[in-house]
Design a protein around this nucleic acid. Structure first.
Lengths: 332, 332
DNA sequence: GTTAGCACTCGGTATCATCGAGTGCTGACA
DNA sequence: TGTCAGCACTCGATGATACCGAGTGCTAAC
């Protein structure tokens, strides 16, 4: 489609633009390594690349800027997977050598790591709550009419609900109901709590019924989202209104979750500009990867930056971190 | 100190500046209600207010802008506590009528509420982890060598730790150690886990020892911070670099925690500009209040906005929400 | 097909004049 | 003495104008 030289010119333009954020003129391209033709020839190629929709010219006498199609070509033409710098690789090793603590904490820290590696905004999406099976159920009375239900799930996530009772209850009843709940739920996904078959005797226990309802009723929550480095968004744009729009999107966690999910569902690892499907993110790109525990995808991690982001670096960081995170979680 | 009229002029300037974000000229002040003197007189007063450090002039032929001292006078001179608008009051009532779920979720939602009420950034600081006493301890084995310790605290917060064992263990040992942990810890603050006296028999149980160490070793964590409406910071400033600096501060949760704590410790409910003690926040103000459960301060809530924020409204919102939140938590 | 040369385009920057909101001061008045 | 109308003055914001230079497209020669 594009002959070798035009592809090189396009790549040079993208790289230069990513580095400088300035429209790239033919002169700069000739200075790029691998380009051994004159500026005039480059100009001819660039005019053609513009006709084909890979570049565009902000105004007549300016250099060229990549379009989404241009970035897409650039990303698709990256063959070498991209390596992290020495310092970054060391940082990742350090992090996973010392990573500890619970799932939430670990995902939050991973998000910080990714943001620090890339200088963009990092997103980590936790495992969906409904997927895991119940490992244990415990009832704890907080007051005589308020009982806390604590459910430990197989993925380490802890779900809790409070139930308010009409009548007072005592420790023995709480212990009884707790034991029965264990019997009923352990080994099954939490979403089935609403549909368990109750014996007549079970139905007579208000605590048991209320507990099951509390567990089953809740709408299946969105997975948790851990953001880090949102301040980096402010560094990437110079219009404060753009920054505001993007931050507003990031505050809506369900949008972020479905954004990453959509991208992965489409089989992509990078979504550029409007490819994200979120209008206010049309100046942004996302690099995504799932992380897998024991071969099963658990959640996803990603990096959000301006469309002129450093794709090779971001892709390398996301790939390495998702791989290491999955491995670390498989161990723990 | 300031005679009545000068105080009125100062208040008028502050109010006008808060509303318009433009330097206020003598003409505008005369149009304010309660000012019944000529522009020339206002000019004399304003010149004096500038000498005294309440106002300052960006340049010779411009209007006046309040200094921190000016805002401080304005805030201190607010006698009427400030009422929420009808729609806002309704929103608060609605929220607390339907508020439910666990502590974390509730604090997160409260943060959103406060941000939505004020159109600034809201901060909610959760209860300090070390304060509460242990209500229940449970051990759950995740694999044969990994055990999860789940501690329910009296304030509803759930602490969890994983322990990795050198040797495999069985359900019976886990149950035994769990029961013993309950005996040792229930009713005591978690911070004492490291210092409990062990019998000789206790010391022989590796699971028990490891569990206590896991609970006691962890450095006392910072209280949780729940932010909402950070995108509003972008709307409040027009320099993208300012926004970035502020966001960067907000990402450091321990700074936010100690900021609110410092302000309250100084006996203030409002910190203006450099009064915050955080250099990058010198263009911001914070309005803070503790929320109390059963008379005891549990945590704090606050609003962060530009120094030219709408103080009466923000103070009213913070006061109402902290009061209602405390009341709601005292019930649940 | 490539390239040197060249006329041309147009955003960015600097210069300058104009405009007007706002000031401080002066002198009159109650 | 405090208030205020009048007035000359200041200075940022706005807009017009000129200029510069990076960058272009085209043409003609190799």
């Amino acid at each position: 489609m594009l002959d070798e030289r035009k592809a090189n010119v396009l790549r040079a333009v993208v790289e230069e633009y990513i580095a400088t954020a300035q429209p790239v003129g033919s002169g700069h391209v000739t200075r790029a390594p691998g380009i051994n033709v004159s500026a005039a020839t480059v100009r001819n190629d660039m005019a053609l690349l513009e006709q084909e929709g890979y570049l565009y010219q902000p105004h007549t006498s300016a250099g060229r800027v990549p379009t989404e199609k241009g970035y897409r070509f650039f990303v698709d033409s990256l063959t070498t997977p991209g390596r992290l710098g020495g310092a970054e690789a060391q940082q990742v090793r350090n992090f996973f050598a010392h990573a500890h603590g619970e799932l939430e904490r670990m995902l939050q820290d991973t998000s910080r790591l990714l943001s620090s590696l890339t200088a963009y905004t990092a997103v980590v999406v936790g495992p969906p709550h409904e997927a895991a099976t119940v490992r244990s159920v415990q009832l704890v009375s907080l007051t005589s009419t308020v009982v806390l239900v604590v459910v430990v799930l197989s993925n380490g996530v802890i779900e809790k609900r409070t139930i308010d009772l009409a009548a007072e209850t005592d420790e023995a009843a709480v212990a009884d109901a707790g034991r029965r709940l264990c019997e009923l739920l352990v080994g099954r996904p939490l979403t089935e709590a609403a549909k368990v078959d109750l014996t007549e005797r079970d139905s007579a226990d208000p605590l048991l019924v209320a507990g099951l309802r509390a567990l089953g009723d809740e709408p299946p929550e969105e997975p948790d989202v851990y953001l880090a480095g949102t301040s980096n968004m402010a560094a990437a744009f110079d219009a404060v209104s753009t920054v505001q729009e993007i931050l507003r999107i990031l505050e809506q966690h369900f949008v972020v979750v479905s954004l990453l999910k959509d991208v992965l569902d489409r089989g992509l690892s990078v979504a550029i500009g409007t490819e994200t499907g979120v209008q206010p993110l049309s100046d942004c790109s996302v690099v995504v990867a799932p992380y897998e525990v024991d071969g099963e995808p658990l959640g996803s991690i990603g990096v959000l930056g301006p469309t002129r982001m450093n794709y090779p670096q971001a892709m390398a960081a996301v790939a390495v971190v998702s791989e290491r995170l999955g491995r670390r979680l498989s161990e723990g």
